[in-house]
Write a protein that binds this DNA or RNA. Sequence first.
DNA 1: TTTCATACATATCGATTAGTATGTAAATTT
DNA 2: AAATTTACATACTAATCGATATGTATGAAA
Lengths: 211, 211
Amino acid sequence: MSVAPSRRRTQVDRSAETRMILIGAAIELLHTVGFAGTTTALIAKRAGVTTGALHHHFSTKDELMFGVLDHASERMRDRLEAEEHLSPDGVLHISDLVQHLWQVYGDPEYWAIWEIIIGTRSDGVLHPRVVTHRLDTMRTVLHPWLERHTSENDARPDIVAIFEFMLIAIRGLSLERFLDKDEAYFERNLKILAELVGQRLETLAQHDFSR
Amino acid sequence: MSVAPSRRRTQVDRSAETRMILIGAAIELLHTVGFAGTTTALIAKRAGVTTGALHHHFSTKDELMFGVLDHASERMRDRLEAEEHLSPDGVLHISDLVQHLWQVYGDPEYWAIWEIIIGTRSDGVLHPRVVTHRLDTMRTVLHPWLERHTSENDARPDIVAIFEFMLIAIRGLSLERFLDKDEAYFERNLKILAELVGQRLETLAQHDFSR
DNA sequence: TTTCATACATATCGATTAGTATGTAAATTT
DNA sequence: AAATTTACATACTAATCGATATGTATGAAA
């Protein structure tokens, strides 16, 4: 009651708000019931509006899905950029990095993106657009981040490759969520990932004369 | 014409044959159009029969899906047991093992199982049964295989844990298929996986007094 | 304050879904 | 070979999908 939204809102505010509520509802549904289960009726119900409102803001369901891709990608970028994984001394510990990546790319919210990628695979029109969107995101988000976190004189290609592998492993781990694994299972495998990568990076550093 | 099937077949033969054709068609569709896209009409069409025949052999679609789980699990076990990954001298090379696991668990056919796991996630009745089926399979297939390939006096728990991690990574890698990555991408990451694990296992062996 | 555009709701559409009812042909039993 | 069961096909049903058509309420412009 104290922070009740002003009763009289401008049109653009209402639109933006409703659009975000719809996108948020779609994201939730994508990772709870999957792409096929995320129907327009369910999205509208979850958003507290009708399908009429949904189709007013997103003329087609595909359009809404791209809204989800845009929003989720942006949120993931923000969370990736939040560099709370750096310890106070500025040193990057592998175990912290793994935890950070897990929090970002192991998050159920991120899975919504993959639901769209996988769910549209046989759609000749939609899938190529989804894949392109994905490539763009990786290029504008991940690569700059990588260049900022690896020095020029590193064995950078190797390190970048290992980083890509880390994301792959984390994605594979997130699949296990669907098998109702407990938290210890995830922590154990994250620890293994950190150990494997840490050991490898040490070796790479030893062979790198610039150090 | 030479090996044309005998025109007059027994009922059980006809049944078994049609059931297998249906299951095969379902598996193909599961990894090409996904769980939701695998409709009874499509399955029947692909199998060259009608939906009437489908429902005669599998009274419900769920039943057919469990037929898929049974068959695919069995096939994966056979392929896992085919120990062509052992080099002639009997020594197990990590890179060969990784390739072997990739051929089995990175195969599109195997993804059909995961389509069912993920696709049924919000089905309160079906999903628990699917998860149970999965656990049974892992227990009766993977664990015996692991015990056969690790010696008692090894640091077995560590090795088993690393093995589980390998499967997770391979699963994550197989997801990238949906992004139209080229073959080099997969090979590069399989090589990284083999390097990481190989290096780790060497360290474990050094600390193991039994060697 | 009147006019108009925007933001929604309601009602309904054709298409598609899993499943059923019923018919016919093939195989087995008697 | 007649009777019966099994293996399918055809036709249909209720439910649900994304989408549209049309109405009403709300905010912006005049």
